Simulated assay, not measured.
Amino acid sequence: MPLDAYAAGAAYVDGRYMPVAEAAIPVTHFGWRRSDVTYDVVGVWEGSFFRLDDHLTRFAASRAKLRMTPDESEADLRAILNRVVALSGLRSAYVSMECVRGAPAPGQPRHPAFVRPYVVAFAIPWIWLAPPEMMARGMHLMTSQTLRIPPESVEPRAKNFHWGDMTRAQFEALEAEADYAILPDREGNVTEGPGFNVFSITGGVVSTPIRGGLDGITRQSVMELCEELGLPLEVRAIPVAELQAADEIFACTTAGGIMPASRIDGRRMNNDRPGPISMRLHDRFWEKRAEGWRATPVDYAAATEMA
């Protein structure tokens, strides 16, 4: 297949490479019918993966929590991710790795223990969760009435497709004319937003929730930056009321890095602009990325080897 067929993105599905538009899973598979999937997303920026080893480690931990053991080894996964990026030719890409439960073989029980899991991966052009104009003015956030699914029901540290609560909260955000929702737990503490972790800053202290959300790789990067910059950091329960009164708030995710906010539930912070500490972290994050921090270069020659 000519390489230009992959220009919109490339995918791998259970042993085969293809243009991303051709990637699909059968409607009978548990991955579709039961959201029996775990996944991870690693970013490629200017030709290099960011923290690829950390993403692969978290993906392995998520699979273990969901009792999924695909045929591919970690070395295989690393090669697959490289190849989908190389085939696409993208220098900045959103790269997903997924483990999907299939369908029971004839005569087998309809139980996940008897269903083969398999790997899906794809690379598409880079996605900004907060586009540049939103980043410049600061995200407008709101706290939802919808509660986050509790960890006792669905473990958020294993990335999953159980987004019913997130989707419902995003409709709340739309009705409130906000960009994104932040979901509380049943104890009234902050968890996370749809696709991002949350940090608050009060009195110069940076805080992030200890429970109810994903242990984000970008979140870990923020923690490392706080240590580098000498910023006090706390990982603890954050009541919603504390977040609503914070001096600054920012979100963070693979698809956008550090994303400062300027409003929470209609309240304007820092003259309706991103706060100074948030921007200090934002700027240092991208400076270090430009310096090659935790970077793994993509081997683009892998595309011609497969063509």
Results as ranks from 00 to 15, higher is better:
P2L: 14
G9A: 01
Y12P: 14
Y17A: 06
D36G: 11
V41G: 01
G43S: 00
D53S: 03
D54Q: 15
H55S: 03
F59K: 04
A61F: 12
R63F: 08
L66W: 06
P70K: 03
D71V: 11
S73A: 02
A79Y: 10
L81Q: 14
A86D: 09
V95G: 06
S96E: 15
S96G: 12
A103S: 12
P104I: 14
Q108M: 12
R110W: 15
A113T: 13
Y118G: 12
A121Y: 10
I124R: 09
L129G: 10
A130K: 06
M134P: 09
L141F: 09
T143L: 05
T146D: 05
T146A: 00
R148L: 02
I149A: 04
P150L: 07
E152M: 07
R157D: 02
K159P: 12
M166I: 09
Q170L: 07
E175V: 13
A178R: 13
E187C: 03
G188P: 05
E192I: 05
P194V: 00
F196N: 01
V198M: 06
S200A: 10
T202M: 00
V205S: 02
V205M: 04
R211C: 13
G212C: 06
G216F: 02
C226H: 14
E227S: 11
E227P: 00
E228Q: 14
G230V: 04
P232Q: 15
V235R: 06
R236E: 15
A237N: 10
A237I: 12
A241P: 08
E242K: 08
L243I: 07
L243M: 09
E248W: 07
M269C: 07
R273I: 04
G275W: 02
L281N: 07
E287I: 07
G292P: 12
V298N: 04
D299R: 09
A302D: 09
A307C: 15
